Computed example of a mutant assay.
Amino acid sequence: MGKPPMKVSPIQGAQSVSRTLQVLRAIAGQLGRGVSLAYITHQTELTKPTVHRLLQALMAEGMVDRSEEEGYFLGPECYALGVIADQRYGLSRIASTPVKRIAEECGDSAFFSLRSEWHSICLIREDGNYPIKTHVLQPGTRLPLGVGGGGIAMLAALDDDEIERCLDANAEECATRFPHDQRSDLLPRVAECRALGYGINRGSVVSGSWGVGAVVRDEADRVIGSLSIAAIDSRLQPDRQQQFGPLLVREAKALESKIQQAQRTRR
């Protein structure tokens, strides 16, 4: 997928925090595989001494581990924080059942992605039984809103002012990494999604890898994520778009009810 988005925080004095998060995201992007110092430096576009200094600090705090043979990994403190965060949100547990059900129904790959301001992060992937799969989206993949079927659905669910802010915030990243996901590409997809109720990606990220997605909202009607499927293009032509788009919308509505119930229970 290339480099993850690496933006310096606009908050004065927060540059070190922003750089530290860049390093953690670069490590996390390899989905449990070890990464080298050179890899992190390339992904973050930070200098080698800066990355080395940040890694030393993160290792001292247990946020990063290092293996002589395999390189750097997320450490046990990251896992502990993730467990605590999951107790607050619980989305991976709640969303895993519908994602698995969708994958079984369509035979292709199904996903739940979480909104993170102007980006989405894939949390769950389940593969169906069709032997040819698309591998663009994996747990941990971070994409600008509007990229991919689920990203289109999330972007379209924002109000117009939010859409403009999102497109402005992601313009440089999309110009660099997603040449077929520019403002002029995304706005027609937003209009289509609003008309249909679900977003369609016709291979904008990787040619031949198509997707369909539906937005998921919380109790306050805020966009929190999406359910989506991805497949090779021959598996997502209009007939199957019309079959599985509404299915995703139904599953998203059911998931919203589960999430809202969980939110009320935690009060």
Rank of each mutant, 00 (worst) to 15 (best):
V223Y: 06
H135D: 15
V223W: 04
G62A: 12
L54P: 00
Q15A: 15
R93W: 09
G245S: 02
R267W: 10
A14G: 02
R125M: 11
A110E: 04
D127W: 10
T176L: 15
A191R: 05
R217S: 02
V215I: 08
A171S: 08
R101S: 13
Q243G: 06
L21K: 11
R142M: 15
V83L: 13
D108T: 13
G107H: 05
S226I: 06
M154S: 00
A57K: 12
R25I: 08
E105R: 13
S234I: 14
I121P: 00
T41L: 07
Q182L: 12
G203F: 04
R250Q: 14
V99F: 02
I27E: 00
P246Q: 10
C193N: 02
E173S: 09
R264C: 06
L37S: 08
R264N: 04
K133L: 10
R93D: 05
N129D: 13
P179I: 08
G225D: 00
Q263S: 11
T265C: 10
R165E: 11
I152R: 00
D233C: 04
M6Q: 09
S109C: 08
A14F: 15
C122P: 03
L58M: 09
D86N: 08
I232G: 07
R222S: 10
E251I: 04
P188C: 02
G107R: 08
G203C: 00
L91N: 01
M63C: 09
G149H: 01
W118C: 11
A175S: 13
Q261L: 09
S207A: 07
N129T: 15
A80S: 06
I121S: 01
E69G: 02
E172T: 14
E104K: 10
L236I: 04
S109D: 12
Q263E: 13
E192Q: 09
H119K: 11
G197N: 01
D161F: 13
V205Y: 03
K133I: 12
L248P: 00
A95P: 00
S67H: 04
R53W: 08
I124F: 05
L247K: 03
E219H: 11
D239G: 01
A231G: 08
T141G: 13
G148W: 02
